[in-house]
């Protein structure tokens, strides 16, 4: 494989700086790293969501590359337009990149995303997944996991938070037969950086789904954002994988999962869960991993 991007080789320039995201924000780290990998040729499109709210506060503008706010539902369609427009006026060495949250991707923007993949426009779509509509005050999205407490899925005596499992967006996107899709986590930036690099070199639509915890919405201390995303991978509730040439590939195969209970109960949004709820989550995880191990290419290799 070609040269890896590391902390040593990545550009020193910052393209998302001085923003007003909360201390310890995972989403802002995902955006910062993505733009550092793509460089100044990136033209970013952000729908309504935290990253547009914290990045554009006129006259305080925190993106130093070309950036634009799209409609909530139209990230991918605006990307299509940006890419076609930049090409038409003869701009060279650019990459149209979408930076949308989980709600803007899995719920509100899924139609535009599906259309863009169908047209196979030359764009990169990055979904930073913090598992709820955090910008508007923690409402449930399609990517909120089972059992999580949000303001629209409260926990009470009878119902313990969200009753529906997390939508499997990575595989929904892959089902379009997209040239390249991947999952990532801000807990493993080396993996994330190299997936962005790989995606940016591929002609056609590419999609990266990166988990980016929100300390406020998840109920964790602000300095534990990275730790909790690592725990999420270790306990098997998230996986690092790629989809390319019609094949799924797992990048990391944990031999043994760490305690799912430890991961869940260290967060405020899962504090109310009882043993029975945790068993349901563990069973969902085990079923998912059985399918993964049966059908996906699980041989580990360096990205």
């Amino acid at each position: 494989m070609s040269k890896q991007i590391t902390a040593k080789t990545i550009t020193d320039s910052e393209f998302f700086y001085g923003h007003k995201a909360c201390a310890g924000c995972g989403g802002s780290l995902a955006v910062r790293i993505a733009l550092k990998v793509l460089g100044e040729g990136a033209i970013s499109v952000l729908p309504a969501g935290c990253m547009s709210a914290v990045g554009f506060n006129y006259p305080h503008l925190c993106f130093s590359n070309n950036s634009i706010i799209s409609t909530f539902a139209g990230t991918a369609s605006m990307l299509t337009g940006v890419e076609a427009g930049a090409r038409a006026v003869g701009i060279k060495n650019f990459k149209a990149v979408g930076l949308a949250g989980d709600g803007g991707t899995a719920d509100i923007g899924i139609q535009a995303l599906s259309g863009a993949i169908d047209r196979n426009d030359d764009i990169l779509y990055i979904c930073y997944d913090n598992e709820a509509y955090m910008n508007t005050g923690i409402q449930k999205s399609g990517l909120t996991p089972f059992g999580a407490k949000t303001t629209t899925t409260p926990s009470g005596e009878n119902i313990h938070g969200n009753i529906r499992p997390k939508k499997n967006l990575f595989e929904i996107v892959a089902a379009h037969n997209i040239p390249y899709a991947a999952t990532a986590s801000i807990g493993d930036l080396k993996d994330f950086m190299n997936k962005i690099e790989k995606a940016s070199k591929i002609k056609g639509t590419t999609y990266i789904h990166v988990v980016a915890p929100c300390p406020i919405g998840w109920g964790i201390p602000v300095n534990e954002t990275i730790e909790i995303s690592r725990k999420m991978i270790d306990c098997g509730l998230w996986y690092l994988a790629e989809y390319e040439n019609g094949q799924f590939k797992l990048n990391r195969t944990p031999r043994k999962f760490s305690s799912i209970k430890d991961y869940l109960l260290s967060q405020g949004r899962f504090k109310h869960l009882e043993d029975a709820d945790i068993k349901i989550l563990a069973a969902q995880r085990d079923a998912k991993w059985t399918t993964i191990r049966k059908n996906w290419n699980t041989t580990e290799e360096e990205l």
Partner: peptide
């Protein structure tokens, strides 16, 4: 539209 990377307040 306005100039990119224009900071006016500290955090």
């Amino acid at each position: 539209a306005s100039e990119a990377g224009y900071l006016v307040t500290k955090n």
